[in-house]
């Protein structure tokens, strides 16, 4: 097995793991986002809770979940490993004057910081929703539908969390970080895998930019929506429930 470990711990090998896990996590973001869009459905969380129940109990999803854990795990581990290696490569004495802003994008140089913010968010996020959903501590949905009556009411947990200002702030900050992280990370993943072509690379780059903006904006819209526009039951505030908001909300 030595050639495998040697390959995967080489500078390029580590980068390839970063790229593969990163792009895999991008697909996770898409699934997660589509599911979470249920939050905007104007049904006191029925659809969202059904979805989260499915995600929490379906054996296929539960299996894939382990892949996700590994994806995150390797992405984070390799990030630390690479950062250590790269810091050491500069040597003990750094530059007195370094104007890297004149030759590269801030995002590209600060993936570590962006990633760290996302990691902090991830821990809070996992504890608040995933942990409680999986290991108890959430109220049941109740209601008349016998099928959904015993489902965890994750929706209410979301609504109440998103009425805490600092929580909303953390979420929004994390999504901005995620946006920047993806801004660089998406196209970077392709580059690392060697998928660079004069025809397609410009397309990949702009798809990456669009992906970064749409995904992070959509995720950030969730806490903002509940914080700004709904009451503590998740219903639109009467005063703000303008026809436009109705239109938007019912569109989902």
């Amino acid at each position: 097995m030595s050639w495998i470990t040697k390959t995967l711990t080489s500078s390029i090998g580590r980068k390839i793991i970063m790229a593969l896990t990163g792009l895999f996590l991008c697909t996770f973001l898409v699934v997660h986002l589509i599911g979470n869009l249920q939050l905007f459905k104007h049904d006191q969380g029925a659809a969202f809770n059904t979805y989260s129940h499915f995600m929490g109990t379906n054996p296929i999803i539960r299996t894939i979940e382990w892949g996700l854990v590994l994806g995150f795990g390797f992405h984070i581990f390799e990030a630390f490993a690479l950062t250590r290696r790269n810091k050491a490569a500069r040597g003990a004495t750094g530059y007195v004057s370094n104007h890297s802003e004149q030759n590269s994008e801030w995002t590209s140089r600060n993936m570590g910081i962006l990633g760290s913010i996302i990691l902090i968010f991830l821990i809070v996020h996992l504890y608040n929703f995933f942990w409680r959903a999986r290991f108890g501590g959430l109220d049941k949905m109740g209601g008349d539908n016998p099928e959904t009556r015993d489902y965890d009411n994750l929706y209410m947990a979301v609504v109440s969390s998103f009425h805490i200002w600092w929580y909303v702030l953390l979420y929004v900050a994390a999504q901005i970080s995620l946006g920047y992280h993806l801004w660089h990370g998406f196209r970077s993943g392709f580059q690392t895998l060697g998928l660079n072509h004069r025809k397609y690379t410009p397309v990949i780059k702009y798809v990456g930019y669009a992906f970064a903006v749409v995904v992070s904006a959509a995720f950030a819209a969730m806490p903002l929506y509940f914080f700004l526009f709904t009451n503590d039951q998740g219903d639109l505030k009467a005063a703000i429930a303008s026809p436009i908001m109705h239109a938007v909300a019912s569109a989902f």
Partner: peptide, 16 residues
């Protein structure tokens, strides 16, 4: 392998 042995860092696609 030699590049890694020399102690150069790994590319993070910054583009500098």
């Amino acid at each position: 392998a030699q590049m890694d042995k020399e102690g150069f860092g790994a590319c993070t696609n910054i583009g500098s």
